[in-house]
Structure formats: structure tokens, C-alpha cells
């Protein structure tokens, strides 16, 4: 059976099949035939008109049940106490609903900017099938565009969140309008 048929969808466009920071490398039984490049999830989505995007997200976030599977499965969600479980003060609403879930999801995604290694697990485990990878990929793209940083690729590189250079742009998410 070809590997591509049984492997998780998110692995089929894995860009990092050959890394060099291992101790031991077991031989792959088969190479995964790449069906698409990682960016395609995003570029396909970005073809959608801007106005139509928010209603779609609103519907997706409505379905979130705050089961926190995305957080639990994420290799980069390593906070000992998550902001979503903290109750003094409670910053992420505990009640579940479109707005409240949006706060939770956006907070998590933003917190993963410069940290997310694009394993795609959050999207895979989500019982409500939120297309979270679109968001994390966008974060990676922004971080790479502005700061030339791809998390997890080069262990010698200074970490995104803990380094500062005078060349860093002032903005992160919203680029000011160019004059």
C-alpha cells in the first residue's frame, strides 16, 4: 500500500522530510510523494475574497467546543499554566460561544507565532474541524517575511521571541499602509 494513502492528510504536503538535526535516522520505507507544498493550503484560501473570509471564520469558531485538544496536542504549547485555564484573573472567557471561542483561538495562534513548527496536529485533532493550519501557516509566513525566522529549522539561530535586532520592523500583524 502506498504510504500516501494511509498517511494523515497534513503529512502529505510535509516540506520537512529531510532534516539534519537528528541523532539517529531510521531509513524511510518509502518517500512520501508530495501532493502539494505547505503554502498551498494558504494560497488556496487567500484566493477567497476578503469580505467573505470573516463570516466563514465566524462559523468555524462557533463550532469550537473549547476541548483544548489543540493545546494539549501541540508540541509548542508548553506553558505550565495556560492562560485559558487561569482564573485569577480570567482573561479567556470560560463560557463557550462564537465570540469567546474566537478569543481563545486567536490568542493561541498569536502566541504560537515564531514558535509553530507546522506539524498540523491542531487541525488534525480538532473535532469541530477548524482549519487552524491556515492560521498557523499565515503566522509562519509573516514571521518569516518580517524577521527571516522559521521556527525549528536552525538550532543555532536566536529564538524569535527572545532576540531583538534594530532591523526588526515595528509592526507584527498589521503592516502600516505604505506611503
Amino acid at each position: 500500500m502506498p504510504l500516501a494513502e494511509i498517511i494523515a492528510g497534513k503529512c502529505q504536503d510535509c516540506q520537512y522530510q529531510e532534516m539534519d538535526n537528528y541523532d539517529e535516522l531510521l531509513p524511510y520505507p518509502q518517500k512520501i510523494g508530495l501532493t502539494a507544498k505547505g503554502e498551498n493550503v494558504l494560497t488556496a484560501y487567500e484566493k477567497l475574497e476578503f469580505e467573505k473570509r470573516w463570516p466563514e471564520w465566524a462559523r468555524h469558531f462557533e463550532n469550537c467546543i473549547q476541548c483544548f485538544a489543540c493545546r494539549k496536542v501541540c508540541p509548542m504549547c508548553y506553558c505550565t499554566e495556560c492562560i485559558a485555564s487561569k482564573n485569577e484573573p480570567r482573561l479567556i472567557p470560560q463560557s463557550v460561544g462564537g465570540k469567546q471561542n474566537t478569543v481563545w483561538q486567536i490568542t493561541r495562534i498569536m502566541h504560537l507565532a515564531g514558535r509553530c513548527i507546522d506539524c498540523g496536529e491542531c487541525e488534525r485533532v480538532c473535532p469541530a474541524k477548524l482549519p487552524l493550519r491556515r492560521l498557523t501557516l499565515k503566522m509562519r509566513q509573516i514571521v518569516n517575511d518580517y524577521y527571516k525566522y522559521v521556527p525549528g529549522l536552525d538550532p543555532r539561530q536566536d529564538l524569535f521571541w527572545s532576540s531583538y535586532s534594530k532591523k526588526d520592523p515595528e509592526y507584527l500583524i498589521f503592516k502600516p499602509e505604505e506611503k
Binding site: 467546543i65 473549547q66 476541548c67 483544548f68 485538544a69 493545546r71 494539549k72 496536542v73 482564573n87 472567557p93 470560560q94 463560557s95 485533532v125 473535532p127
Partner: peptide, 22 residues
């Protein structure tokens, strides 16, 4: 187990709840 809440939240018989103010 990764201790997420999927099984309990989707389970039709799970009924434990929390009470809080907003």
C-alpha cells in the same frame, strides 16, 4: 491519553459541569 476534553465534551452522557460568573 493527552487529557484533552474531546471524549467528555462529545459524549452524549457526560454531564459534569462548571459554574462561574461572567
Amino acid at each position: 491519553c493527552i487529557n484533552c476534553g474531546i471524549c467528555t465534551f462529545l459524549c452524549p452522557t457526560c454531564h459534569c459541569f462548571d459554574v462561574f460568573d461572567e
